[in-house]
Design a protein around this nucleic acid. Structure first.
Length: 187
DNA sequence: AGGATGATGGACT
DNA sequence: GTCCATCATCCTA
C-alpha cells in the first residue's frame, strides 16, 4: 500500500500508519533524516483540539489542502511544529509529527539543536533538527523533488495509543500514537 | 483595538 | 517537578 493511499484515510487511521515512515530534509546544505516514532491525529472541524476546529483561517489553510501538504505553525511564540494534511482535500484533517529518531545526518541535527542528545523527541525539537520553519508551510511532502519529503519505512512491531499531549479539549480521545520500541517515549 | 491563549522546551531547584 | 520566555493568531468588544 502506497504512502499516498495511507494519507487519504481519516486521521485516527492514518496516524499510526505514519509511525516508522521517514522525513527526509534537504532544506540545508546537508540532509537530515528522522524516523517517525510519535504522532497525534487532529480531526479538523469535528475536533475541538484541532487548529481547524473553527474552519479555515489565515494560519491553518494548509490543513485544508491536498493530503501530503505540510502545515507548520509557531508554538508558544518560539518553537515550530509540523503536521501533514490527510484525508480528502478540504477536511482540515492532519497529523502532528510529535517525535522521532535521527537516523541520518546526525552531525547536522546536533549542530542545529546545539546539543548531542534529545534531537527530535518532541514536535519543536523535531522541526529544529530538520530545519523546518514557517517558510516551509504549504509544501508537498509527497513530491519527488521536494526538499522535505515523507517516505515509506518499516512499521513498528507494536503501537501504543494514548491521550494527546498539551491540549485542554477532547482530552479523552486516545489519538496520540507511539511506536513501542521508540526512544522518544515520554510519559 | 486589545487581550487571552497555547498541539513547547530549556533552565533551574 | 516547577517556572516562564515570547508572539502570532483569533476572539470579543
Amino acid at each position: 500500500m502506497s504512502l499516498a493511499s495511507q494519507l487519504i484515510q481519516p486521521p485516527e487511521v492514518s496516524a499510526p500508519r505514519l509511525l516508522g515512515t521517514v522525513l527526509v530534509s534537504e532544506l540545508g546544505s546537508s540532509p537530515v533524516t528522522v524516523k517517525i516514532s510519535e504522532v497525534e491525529a487532529y480531526r479538523g472541524e469535528d475536533d475541538p483540539a484541532s487548529h481547524a476546529f473553527r474552519g479555515r483561517t489565515g494560519r491553518n489553510g494548509s490543513m485544508f489542502e491536498v493530503p501530503g501538504t505540510l502545515y507548520v505553525y509557531r508554538s508558544y511564540g518560539v518553537h515550530w511544529c509540523a503536521n501533514v494534511a490527510v484525508g480528502p482535500k478540504g477536511t482540515g484533517w492532519a497529523i502532528l509529527f510529535r517525535g522521532g529518531d535521527v537516523i541520518d545526518g546526525m552531525a547536522t541535527a546536533r549542530s542545529r539543536r546545539g546539543r548531542d542528545d534529545h534531537l527530535a523527541n518532541g514536535p519543536g525539537k523535531l522541526c529544529q533538527a530538520l530545519g523546518i520553519d514557517g517558510s516551509h508551510d504549504g509544501i508537498n511532502l509527497l513530491e519527488a523533488g521536494s526538499p522535505l519529503r515523507l517516505e515509506p519505512g518499516t512499521p513498528p512491531q507494536m503501537v501504543m495509543a494514548t491521550p494527546r499531549v498539551g491540549i485542554t479539549k477532547a482530552q479523552d480521545l486516545p489519538w496520540r500514537f507511539v511506536a513501542a520500541t521508540s526512544s522518544a517515549n515520554r510519559s
